[in-house]
Nucleic acid binder design. Structure first.
Length: 251
DNA sequence: AGCATTGTTTCACA
DNA sequence: TTGTGAAACAATGC
């Protein structure tokens, strides 16, 4: 599920449930989730530290310790991760990473798919500006170029950070733009309108609980019709992901 | 059984 | 060198 809106909610969750608590141990035994760290490496770096800030850009979160003096913990929810606090350890080894606090509580990354990630001092330099915060001129420059399909460009995390498959479909449908259009062909006005729509869709999804609450995302799949004009939605593969769009309205 | 999956990284190719 | 797209990654659900 996790795209920018889910990750923002997860960040706020950690901010509320993690900040100010002292870490006594980190469970970093899953060497795939914690790669390239060795088991015990994250644990020894975080023991005794206190979480002091919860930050996010796109789909990446990171947490400062000891007021910025300690190591930074980076978390990524991957394809199916979510954060839980102060509940017993999940069965089936679905806790892929966890912090235990001095007060006896704990904060865990639950992830059935195991594509989430925990890492020390994450490298964020390859990440574009946050999709909900990027300014007009930078959006024009970054998104409005190249021959790749518009949807692929939007989902490229080095261009702008935070847009995934569902948020892309919802935004392009709301903006009435074809996911197949070469990104570089868009006019300045189209780019400006797209940026505003993206910001709107993103903030609405944060407020309503996630990208699955999108108007065209509800009922996504075979047999769906365009909620506005009732045309059968069309399926395509764009940027390697299944894409649904209205062939009449999205040009 | 087989296929699809909300994410990222790597690799092949133009 | 740069840009683009497909496959691989792990595991589950339909």
């Amino acid at each position: 599920m996790p795209e920018l809106p889910e990750v923002e909610r997860a960040r706020a969750f950690v901010e509320q449930h993690g900040l100010g608590r002292q870490i006594v141990a980190a469970d970093d035994r899953d060497s795939f989730v914690c790669r390239p760290h060795q088991p015990g490496e994250i644990d020894s770096a975080l023991r005794g530290r206190t979480l002091t800030a919860a930050l996010r850009r796109g789909k990446s979160m990171w947490f400062e310790t000891d007021g910025g003096d300690g190591p930074v913990l980076g978390l990524h929810l991957g394809m199916a991760g979510r954060m839980v606090a102060d509940v017993p350890e999940a069965p089936n080894h679905w806790d892929r990473f966890a912090l235990s606090f001095q007060d006896g509580g704990r904060l865990a990354l639950l992830d059935k798919r195991r594509l989430g990630r925990a890492v020390l001092n994450p490298d964020l330099t390859q990440l574009g500006p946050d999709a909900a915060e990027v300014g007009r001129d930078e959006f024009r420059r970054r998104v409005g170029r190249g021959g790749a399909p518009l949807k692929a460009r939007l989902m490229d995390q080095s261009v702008i950070a935070g847009v995934g498959n569902l948020l892309a479909d919802e935004t392009l449908w709301q903006a009435r733009l074809s996911p197949l259009r070469p990104a570089g062909d868009l006019s300045q006005d189209e780019l400006d309108a797209l940026r505003k729509t993206l910001r709107l869709c993103t903030r609405r999804a944060i407020r309503k609980g996630g990208v699955h609450t999108g108007e065209v995302i509800i009922g996504r799949g075979r047999g769906q019709r365009c909620p506005r004009c009732q045309t059968d939605m069309e399926r395509a593969v764009v940027g390697g992901r299944t894409t649904w769009f209205c062939p009449v309205e999205q040009n």
